[in-house]
Design a protein around this nucleic acid. Sequence first.
RNA 1: UGGGGUGUAGCCAAGCGGUAAGGCAGCGGGUUUUGAUCCCGUCAUUCGCAGGUUCGAAUCCUGCCACCCCAGCCA
Length: 563
Amino acid sequence: MSSEQPASPVSPADFIRQRITADRAAGRHGGAVVTRFPPEPNGYLHIGHAKSICLNFGVAEEFGGRCFLRFDDTNPLREDETFVQAIREDVAWLGFDWGDRLTHASDYFERLHACAVELIRRGLAYVDHLSAEQIREYRGTLTAPGRESPYRARSVEENLELFERMRRGEFAEGECVLRARIDMASGNINLRDPTLYRIRKVAHQRTGEAWCIYPMYDFAHTLSDAFEGITHSLCTLEFEDHRPLYDWLLDQLDLPHRPQQIEFSRLNLAFTVTSKRKLSQLVERGIVAGWDDPRMPTLAGMRRRGYPPEAVREFIRRVGVTKKENTIEMGALESAVREHLNVHAERRLAVQRPLKIVLENWPDGQTETVSLPNHPADPARGSREVIFGRELYIEADDFMEDPPRKFHRLKPGGEVRLRGAFIIRCDEMIRDETGQVVELRCSYDPETRSGASGADRKVKGTIHWVHAASAIPVELRLYDRLFSAADPDGQGDYLAALNPESLVTLTGALGEPALAALGPGETVQLERAGYFTRDAASATGVLVLNRTVTLRDSWARLEAAAR
RNA sequence: UGGGGUGUAGCCAAGCGGUAAGGCAGCGGGUUUUGAUCCCGUCAUUCGCAGGUUCGAAUCCUGCCACCCCAGCCA
């Protein structure tokens, strides 16, 4: 993947890369760079995770280091092995390779337990029999200090015995926990004797019934970093005030390595949500078709939508890494997608909402073949032959009976070029009983065939078309933003901000025959309409195309501005 | 009344005491058989605000303001 160099000027190193460079210059960690991407297997990865993945794997790659893919599976209540597989696929799809460095926090349960015992021995942890509610009360508030638990003064021997009994399952869930003994008066609530282990009498997806006590995030994560020799533990801003606890744990135990935590701001995208809770709610309530619904900001959704992984990476690169809260506009992502697809996707013709036209001066029953380039800017990609004849379909939007000024498509008595073929003139409109125009009678100019001597005659517009008899039916799924508010959470209930038109399905569309050869997941540009990707998940039979992204459309902008 | 962070254009983002990079969006123009692409031009006398230091401040100091995160036996 590193073979692709972005065309854009080199971006300056972000603060994290600057810091790593400084660490290496100072000889810290022996110059090594080891990172990790630590997802919890309780949901699918989304665009926010892509930032973390690109950062962690990217940094390791750039500095000749290593990156672990570590599943943070310390809470068997919420996690599931099926998510592990999905996450592996997503990381691989994005273009990163963890080699033999796929680990689980649960791989370290035994060592983690030994560390907990060591903390108890050093008088730095105790078994607390306060209830969850009492612990909360004793913790104090943001502005008032907490109080010490009456169990805080238990002896090392008693704590050792109690913790062992916790492990053996002699206590019920919630009866007691293991806590660190730090400072109940700290201004940082994470230091008010945080819970290290809790009892969960449920089978773990990987360790089965081996354990009934499970480590908490701060404990497991910090020590896993140390065990794996992580040098730079990169995480998001909300963990900033966990860093003192992270460092405290590293200070108290004799560990082989001393990692450092560095925080950066998470990526927020306008007009969507990226909280796992909300995304799973969309799936569970059937608001979207699944985690891989093309409207979802998940990697699986973007893949099915047709976003190239290169474009996602380029987008992440453009967005940068800082500590500032941010909300990135959708346009930035779409721009990266268009930029990649513009050079890589072949061109095809299809009509989204067909309007029939008949060329009355074209001999009945006769057809000809016209040649269309697969990529106008890249002749090496060849061309294809398309049948042309008397009965065709054009885009309904490309005809207006009473058009505004500067509308240079087809109008009564007007001329337009059919892409790659002839110039035609609209002679007559056929209406149904309601007065609706349902068909156009036209005539073509035989001198204007593309490539012929008369073809240089200028007309204002060029529109796309398909040949009626040879066109194939296609189903087009037109996607738009999932929410109609830039910040769906802004008004409280994010579900109220759902965009009712986030999916419009066009079942009557017609495409040129070459579209039948499109493979699942393959993307083409339907000229003047947008980039479309053959759906990889829908049943065979109908050809289903997902609209990946529209083309930039300055006419649509003019129209909108006029209104 | 606590602790931790962040403020540079509509959205991102460089800058690290020597006179505001770049991208996205926008705007103007050129090319074009995709109203696409491509090309050219334009877009911050000013960096949250107010003082101070300095020949010189977005960068250093002081004070203020705004916004975000933290009171799970979640991660």
